[in-house]
Design a binder for these strands. Sequence first.
RNA 1: GGUACCUUGGCCGAGUGGCUAGGCACCGGUCUGCAAAACCGAUUACGGCGGUUCGAAUCCGCCAGGUACCUCCA
Length: 489
Amino acid sequence: MKHSLYIYNTLSRKKEEFVPIHENKVGMDVCGPTVYGDPHLGHARPAITFDILFRYLQHLGYKVRYVRNITDVGHLENDADSGEDKIVKKARLDELEPMEVVQYYTNRYHKAMEALNVLSPSIEPHASGHIMEQIEFTQKILDAGFAYESEGSVYFDVEKYNKKYHYGKLSGRNIEDMLETTRELDGQSEKHRSIDFALWKKASPEHIMHWKAPWSEGFPGWHMECSAMGTKYLGEQFDIHGGGMDLMFPHHECEIAQNRAGLGKDTVKYWMHNNMITIGGQKMGKSLGNFITLEEFFTGNHKLLTQPFSPMTVRFFILQAHYRSTIDFSSTALEASEKGLSRLMEGYARLQKIVASSSSSVETAGLRAKCEEAMCDDLNTPIVISYLFDTLRAINLIHDGKEIISATDLEELQSVFKLFIEDILGLQSETEVSSGNDAYKKAIDLLLNMRLEAKQNKDWATSDKIRNELTALGFEIKDTKDGFEWRAP
RNA sequence: GGUACCUUGGCCGAGUGGCUAGGCACCGGUCUGCAAAACCGAUUACGGCGGUUCGAAUCCGCCAGGUACCUCCA
């Protein structure tokens, strides 16, 4: 029996059954990175969360168009007149062309994502390549009467919008509170209200990145790109929009308002938000300066890291928590994940070598359904993983010859493990890649066969010497009943 | 100040009314020349107080502590 997928919709604050707008097709938009810095652990979370969703929707048989944008126009540093493109600022510091910075960090992002086994989205549009669409969208909002021009910039009229629609429906805020709690109005004289946000911003003279628009030489406001690009590639109504929880307000709230004002209808059916990764209980982020880049994880080159952590360990660590929970980073937590993952992957490798018997003494039939059920319950990957570990025990017992499994059950188990470990969770074995070529493998086998002989002759000195030397080089040697297993460093 | 959320055993983390996920660590055992691995077993838990209920980690109230957003952030 096929389960229905339920996902948590931030709009309703409830798990809802996922029903696509168009049968068998899913449109999905996720906020991608701003490419002015190295990708860090925080970037890995939404990428992996929505990678899982992307993979699972496809597994369910949907044809998915996944749009993940690259923000390269930059956001305003602040709302004041001196607001400056982040990308421009960095470029000037580095004395690079803005697009050079964009290219550099985009490449770095892609490299990290590939290492994490995050699938490429269907379309990865750059904001800088969609200025026309953003200008047109802004014009639509102006035409609809929900924006005003002021000194070359265009602002969204939140109060007017709120009279007809509801500004704050996603984040649960109300406009009165926002007006009360926003104190500083200095330097914002262009705007009618402090809560109004820019759709188009006139560029100051020192601003390098700017484009021609009916109102001024300038650049789009920072919520505009999602409205313009999402609807361009997915239509005026599409299924899923995702991103980090910190984007809920103002970014996604403003996007909802822009789309409603410009198109006259709500665009997104399901809003999904992943929670943050914390470090010592605090959000890991740029402003706090407590983030660790993905490269630092992979190399171990950071004062908070006791060792390097492989991309798969990082991926597994993230999947061991539900995407809507905060997950607290620590080196010891990563170490625990690393060991768990390694045990899981070894068991998975063992599963391939198991020889079937005429019947089964272990019960494994329900695994597929249980895992599907967990995934359908708002992508509960930690539960899926716990089921895999439960089954791992049976696999090891069969491997040790203490239990038996029939050919039918074995085939099913292999199929389920492949489906969930590789296809859905996207975990891949890292040791096989690094094991090198055939000659190298044969050389190690040769050494270990010599050790086996020494053992048979009770020559413990030679036997231990080979094992100790190989261990010192980073190899893992395991004796089995009738031989050995080894793993490259 | 406003809004939302969180507090689970040594650590990380599931779980939303009864059936006490899982991982890592630790302890005991089996196996082994020794070790590793694997397996078996044991131990440790739901922030505090009160309420609802036959029964609460799970629902309600209060208190304490913490986090996020309200400014760029995944």
